[in-house]
Structures are given as structure tokens and as C-alpha cells.
Design a protein around this nucleic acid. Structure first.
Lengths: 223, 223
DNA sequence: AACCGCTTGTGAACGCAGGAACAAAGTCGC
DNA sequence: GCGACTTTGTTCCTGCGTTCACAAGCGGTT
């Protein structure tokens, strides 16, 4: 069916970035873009961008560039954005509430069809326009809405249990913000996002460069 | 000086994960761990874990395993965690507030010494035990506290301006949550975290596996 | 109609990360 | 004291991702 059996995962992640840039350009009324300009806006190498786009088949005009709207729709199709994705979010603490209220998801075709929390204090509250439900209703909502994506923003101690319940209910993709490695049955994709790891990588790179802070301001360049 | 000129960035990210697991084991009173067990808890391959640890020099005992406390301290030292890192956070919206209140940072040696927001409505409020300050005080606080890490959780439109101000004030490492590629002067590290990109990768993988959702619920079609 | 400049798309080389297999070393048991 | 088992540390290899460089193609111009 599709002449592209597989697209590298790193490329998929970048396609999502290109898509965001293209959406911005389309709103600016821009008609075409060159690979160089698009790569610059996305923060990647122009050759790499062209190679990424080559996975979608030829979609540019030589000598001119890429048609903004066309390319945007093409990428959106490949990423599976023509249809909205129903997501459930478990854990409405600080991070979960931020995710529920984050507009970047809704504008990209992801809709939270259920917010769940184990704490009775949270249940019933409204977050991001949705009412927080008790954990008991999780299975029912996942089944009814056919949600395929589950987001875990709970404390680490209960994340595995939540993961089990989500997979048992039929969720096939999980985005985990809890700082633990989750075990899921085969056929279920788990992606881990650990915010503090990012900070620690930064701290390491900073330390590796050595304490050269004084060198950066040789002649009182503070002003 | 250091016999390890460079540690791969991917390894550094995993070291941070090992460190978290080791801290948990140490609290459990565990004395030693084998690479297999540690790798399982971290969700990686045992051979890869040993290779990662080999960058720190020999730190295990053959036939026994790794001493939990010793290895933890060694990794902490390599990651630059013996000294606390002062961070400033700009943008106290949903995500910024979640970050400010996230305990995972403080327990890892990262302290937010300044919270900043451009909105007068936010200034003066208390988030995570700290008072939100106006943007005008950013330069002053960064200089006074010698903060080296800046976290950007603002809307995309102002992220580049915030980045410019942070670097001008002397920040050398930036963690950016705004969905834009930032341009920073040489010598400044920028790490990008895009939450919606993760979701889109999940959606793509789900779509790539084919529309097998119907198989999961054979009886009871949409109609 | 033909030329020229510009841009895409692709092919090849380089470097890096990941995984498996093997040798060294230390401990436990006899 | 010696042997065998366990586990680390290392080495090799395979595959992937990234980058550079070139050929192919299209539009504009004369």
C-alpha cells in the first residue's frame, strides 16, 4: 500500500517540528519556502531536512522550494493528524494540570477525553475545561471513547499500576512523565519524558566546559 | 586533568536515570546491585549499562556487583551534583508553575532562585514557595545569584527575547519548553523539550502499526 | 528557443550508538 | 589451597543517523 515501509523515529520527531513551523508560515500567508529557510527555522541541517522530507516522496519544486500549505498537509497526513486522537490523562497534580491546560495539544489534534485522579480532593474539580473523574471510571471512559493514548502524570510509586490499568483498558500508546521505567505488554508503546534528566544533562555540559564564566566577561561586558 | 575527555551525551542522560534508581535502592538499605538488576530497573540493556559505567572508570567488584552508595556518589560527582545549581525560571503559566512546584528538581540539587513573569497579574504571587518577580529584576537576580541555568516556559512569541536576556545576563545553559528553535550565542547550551512532539511520535507509531483497533474490540463497531 | 542560476532529491562516506560475545578478576565452596 | 561460578570490563561488529557533495530538474531571462 504505502511505498514507505518505515520512517526513522528521529525523522518523525523532526517532522512534527517542521509541521509547526509550516503552520506558522501558512498563517503569515507565505506561499513557498526553501529547505534552507525551513531548516533554519527548525534548527536543523538543510540536507537533513531534505532527507527527512524525501521519506514522504517528492513534494517540492526544484528551483523554487516547497509549497507551504501542501507540505503542511502532507506531513499532517503522515503523522496521522487528519483524525483527532483521543487521550486520557491520569494524575492532575501540578504537571498534569499544566498538560490538561496546554493549548499546544488541542491545536494539534489531540483531545483529552478524560482526566483522572485518585485523590478525592481533585475529583470533581474542573481543569482545562474538563471535570476530573475518579479512577474507577477509567476503564469505562477508555472503552467508550476508544482512547488510544494515555498520559501518566502521577507520582512514581503508582505509575506502573496506572500503566497496567491503561493497557488493560485498551490503550496502546503511553506517554509517561513519572520518573520510573514502565513495563508494558508487547504491542504497547511507552515513551518516557523525564524533566529532571534534561536539567542534569545541562548541568553536566556546563561542568564539562569548566568554570570559564569569568572568561566570558573579559572587559566588564556586563553593561 | 580528567582521564575522561568526553562522555557521550546519550550516556549522560542515562547516568541520570541510574542515579535516580540508585538513590531509591540506597534508601531501601540495599548494599550492592548487579548490572542486570540495575539495567532492568532503568529499562536498558545490561551490556549498555556496563559500557556507560565504564566511562567513569572501574567502579564495580567482579563477581559481586556495584556498591550502591559508592556508585551513586560517583555518578553524582560526574554529573556535577556535588554543588547545587542555581536556576531561574521565566514564565509562570500552567507549565511554569508546574515546574516551579515540581519536587524532582530540588531533590536533585537544582534550586530555583528566581521566578519571573511579564504579566503584572502573576508578579507577587507565590509559586512553589517563591515569589514571582517582574522581568525587570531578571538581570539583577542572575548576576547576584550567579545562576547558570535558565528555564523558559513562556509563550513561543517571546521565548527568543527571553533567551536573549538570559544569555546577556550571563546564563550559560537554557532549557526551553517553548515550541520554537532558539538562537543563542556560542558557548551557550540550549536544550529543547517539546511536549506535543512526543505525543505526535506516539500517534505516528500507532498509525504505522495499522488500524488494528477494531481487532481489539471485535464486537461493537462504531455504527 | 536556449542558457543560466537556483533548489530539490539522492548517493556515498563518516562517526556514533547499541548489542552481543569474550576475557579478566574476584568470591564462595570444598 | 584449589577449583568453579558469578559478574564486571572490554572488544568487536552491525546498524543507524548525520553530514557532505553532486547530479537532476524547473523557472526566469534574453
Amino acid at each position: 500500500m504505502q511505498s514507505r515501509p518505515r520512517i526513522p523515529e528521529a525523522t518523525v520527531a523532526r517532522l512534527a517540528v517542521y509541521l509547526r513551523v509550516l503552520s506558522g508560515l501558512a498563517e503569515s500567508g507565505r506561499g513557498t519556502v526553501s529547505s534552507g529557510e525551513l531548516a533554519s527555522a527548525a534548527g536543523v541541517n538543510p540536507a537533513g531536512l531534505r532527507k527527512d522530507l524525501s521519506h514522504l516522496g517528492p513534494c517540492g519544486t526544484r528551483g523554487v522550494g516547497y509549497e507551504v500549505a501542501t507540505l503542511r498537509d502532507r506531513i499532517a497526513g503522515v503523522l496521522g493528524m487528519e483524525t483527532a486522537h483521543a487521550c486520557v490523562l491520569v494524575g492532575l497534580g501540578n504537571l498534569g494540570s499544566a498538560l490538561a491546560g496546554y493549548g499546544g495539544f488541542g491545536s494539534r489534534g489531540f483531545e483529552f477525553v478524560g482526566l483522572f485522579d485518585a485523590s478525592p480532593a481533585r475529583v470533581g474539580q474542573e481543569v482545562g475545561g474538563r471535570v476530573v473523574r475518579p479512577m474507577e471510571e477509567l476503564d469505562e471512559v477508555v472503552t467508550a471513547t476508544r482512547a488510544t493514548i494515555g498520559v501518566i502524570a502521577t507520582p512514581a510509586e503508582v505509575a506502573q499500576r496506572v500503566c497496567d490499568r491503561l493497557t488493560a483498558a485498551g490503550v496502546r500508546s503511553i506517554l509517561n512523565f513519572a520518573p520510573v521505567a514502565l513495563t508494558a505488554p508487547a504491542g504497547v508503546d511507552v515513551r518516557q519524558v523525564d524533566l529532571s534528566v534534561e536539567l542534569q544533562v545541562l548541568a553536566f555540559l556546563d561542568k564539562q566546559r569548566g568554570p570559564a564564566a569569568a572568561v566570558l566577561a573579559p572587559a566588564g561586558g556586563m553593561a
